[in-house]
Simulated assay, not measured.
Amino acid sequence: MLSDSFDVPVFNKNLSTQWLGQDFHYHAALPSTNTYVKKLDAEEIEHGTVVLTDNQRSGRGQYDRKWKSEPGQNLTFSMVFKPGLTEGFHVLTMACALALVEQLQEIEREACAYIKWPNDVLYNNKKVAGLLTEAVFLGNKLDRLVIGIGLNANQQTYHADLAGKATSIRLETGKKVFRENFLSCLLPRIEYKYDLWLRKNSGLLRKVNRKIEGYGKWIGLSVNGEKKANSYKLLGVNESGRLVVLNKEGGLESFSYEQIRVITD
């Protein structure tokens, strides 16, 4: 048992959601929570299931990049959704990122917290969290949507290749994060935003867009690995989850998150 292992009874006592996290599974160690959840049989899992591990040995980010996390220090978990919809999944990912941004600003109102396209959260201009969304199909039917979150909570040292690029809540605030309390507050925010997303609430998109790094500014773009010569004004995400920009000629262009990278510096 890890000395700083996640206290499930404390988490359960504090959780106030209707459905998200009410079915909660803790594992001391897993290769990847997303991979674990994807392999479960349909009858073993329900809408709102959350799987968390204290030691994610082979965490994955977008494009199969590794997500390294110190055991017992952070929050590495996956959430299961069964929306009955087959589109707009990236908007839901961004809504989950928005919930995280809002909670970081609850901790420290002066904090600079933003969503970095397509699926990271920045805290004082350094990466504090990443999200990974994957779908599981049974034949042609969507069985579950899995959204994994890796959040740097209490980790204080990083590999040299991440120096100056990654941070944690503890490094930014100087205070230890009680992970059980943080997660029990975060899940109700995500549950609420999920319901807004399901109803295609336009106000949710506006809030997401205002928190995307570079929103309303002229930015650079890399499309399919090739940097564009011109600048574009970032207008935000549309209902289908595509990033919309304004070009210099006044025309609108949109891109899927797989195609595009936003360059703000």
Rank of each mutant, 00 (worst) to 15 (best):
Q22F: 07
R210S: 10
I147A: 00
V80R: 06
V237E: 01
I260C: 05
P118N: 12
G48D: 00
H25D: 08
A166Q: 06
G21W: 03
W218E: 00
L52D: 13
S16D: 08
F255D: 03
N55H: 15
L162G: 02
N230W: 11
R206L: 12
Y36C: 10
G88K: 00
P83V: 06
D41L: 06
Q155F: 05
Y194D: 01
K175E: 13
T264F: 03
H159A: 13
A229N: 07
Y215G: 08
D41P: 04
K233D: 13
C185F: 09
W218A: 00
N230P: 03
V223Q: 03
R261M: 09
E213M: 08
Y63H: 09
V37R: 02
K217S: 13
G214Q: 02
Q22H: 07
H90K: 06
N14V: 03
L85T: 08
A166I: 09
D143M: 12
L151D: 01
F77I: 11
L221F: 10
K233L: 11
F255Q: 03
V51E: 13
W218S: 00
Q259H: 14
R179E: 07
L75N: 01
L252E: 15
Q56F: 01
Y158N: 04
S256P: 04
K126H: 11
T167K: 02
R170W: 01
G251I: 10
G250Q: 09
K82H: 08
V245S: 03
Q105E: 15
D195E: 15
Q62I: 09
A28I: 13
G250C: 12
L15K: 09
V50P: 00
K127V: 15
E70Y: 02
I260V: 15
E102L: 08
L145I: 14
K39T: 14
L243S: 09
Q73Y: 09
Y123F: 14
L15G: 10
T157N: 11
S222F: 01
F81L: 12
I115M: 05
G59V: 06
